[in-house]
Every structure is written in structure tokens, then in C-alpha cells.
Design a protein around this nucleic acid. Structure first.
Lengths: 101, 101
DNA sequence: ATTAAATATTTATATATTTGCATTTGTAAT
DNA sequence: ATTACAAATGCAAATATATAAATATTTAAT
């Protein structure tokens, strides 16, 4: 049994940033739409969520910047998808915890 | 295969709040100290983290309010501990994700 | 080279969060 | 009842975040 976690401030900061990126209702909704390796464009997400295009782009930018999502441009479209699929499990886990209040 | 997640705005909000509560370097550090069912007092945590007593109390209050921690008073001390132990797994999972950047 | 569609950026405003100090409340001991 | 220790609260200043409107960039088609 190795104790790797001596609480490195930088890792702490990174983890917090990643979580902060996810910790927003719209961004969680985005993640849920991307579960299972799905790839969606900015427009698709903006229509699915019913929020402004620029707001959508901002949220996607945050998620990408913090290492939650990746993106790939194909012609005029940019597809976004989960970088680590486990992240959607994190969200599910959290939701289960919010259940039994 | 049941599709439970029709993305209820309230659940979304709840999950986001819980995540927001966790998404802070100091608060993640607190969770790591409480892993495995450990119970610590405000003073212990405030000394472990090297931050102000009132700041510590604030952070603990946020974590408790959002359903991440529970507390139990014993004499002059108040012990804080994880409500759902799975939450420390969430943190570990996240940290693993921050690794392979 | 123009035009149009998709995405990103800039900017401004509103709102929320973090932090520490000072204070207050709760509890136990003398 | 006074004192002492532990924890919580109110407050203010600094900082960060969210949103949307307007603008700019990128790419493809004509």
C-alpha cells in the first residue's frame, strides 16, 4: 500500500479547478449529454440547452481549458467530447449522493 | 437499461452545489484529511491546514451545508466527518484525472 | 472576392466567493 | 459569576465568475 497523496498544493489546485469547471448546472448538463463518448457541436449543445451561443462557447471553453473536454474541428463545426469518460461517472455518483438527503 | 436521467433542473442544481462545495483547494484538503471515516475538530483542521480559525469554520460550514460533511459536538469541540465516504473516492478519481495531462 | 454559417472573443454588468478581523455564542472549569 | 477555550457569525474588501450583446475569426460554398 503506497501513500502517494502527501497533498501537493499544485495537484490540489488542479483538482479544484477541474471540479470548479464541472460545478455548474449548465456544465453538468453538457457532460450528461456527452456521456458514453458522444461528440456534439457548439450549436447542437446550444440548442439542446436553450442558452446563448456565446454562453455555450464560454462554458465549453472552460471545460476544455480545465481538462474536462477535448475538441476537434471538422469543417465549420467543432465537436466537443469527454476527455476522461470516468468524469461522467463522477457526476452520476454525486447525483446519487444528492438523492438520500 | 433504464434512463433515469432526464436532467431535472433541481437535481442538476443540487449536484452543482455539492460539487461547488468541494471545488476548492482547502476544502479538498479537508476531505483528504477526513478519508476513511476520520473525525476532526475545527481546531485540528485549522492547525493541519495552517489557515485562520474563522476561515476554517467557514469552509466546514459550506461543506456541511451542501451535504458533504456532518458534524457532532462533544463538549467544547465539534467533530466533522464525511457524510458519504464515497466522496473521498470522487476526489481521488479527479486527482487521477489531473495526472495524465 | 463575397457571402454565409459556425465558433470564438471582447466587453460590460451583475452576481457570487474568498478571506480575515472583530465579535459573539456555546461549553466547561474554577 | 468569572474565566478560558472552541466554534460560529457578521461584516467588508478583494477577487472571481456568469451572462449576454456585439464583434471578430474561421471555414466552406458560390
Amino acid at each position: 500500500m503506497i501513500k502517494i497523496q502527501e497533498i501537493d498544493p499544485d495537484r490540489l489546485e488542479m483538482a479544484a479547478n477541474m471540479l470548479k469547471a464541472i460545478a455548474h448546472p449548465m456544465r453538468i448538463a453538457i457532460l450528461k449529454h456527452l456521456e458514453g463518448g458522444k461528440k456534439l457541436t457548439v450549436t447542437q449543445i446550444h440548442e439542446l440547452l436553450g442558452i446563448e451561443q456565446s454562453t455555450t462557447s464560454h462554458h465549453l471553453g472552460i471545460l476544455k481549458d480545465k481538462g474536462v473536454l477535448c475538441s476537434r474541428r471538422e469543417g465549420k463545426n467543432t465537436f466537443y467530447y469527454l476527455k476522461h469518460d470516468v468524469l461522467s461517472q463522477v457526476v452520476d455518483c454525486l447525483e446519487r449522493c444528492t438523492c438520500g438527503e
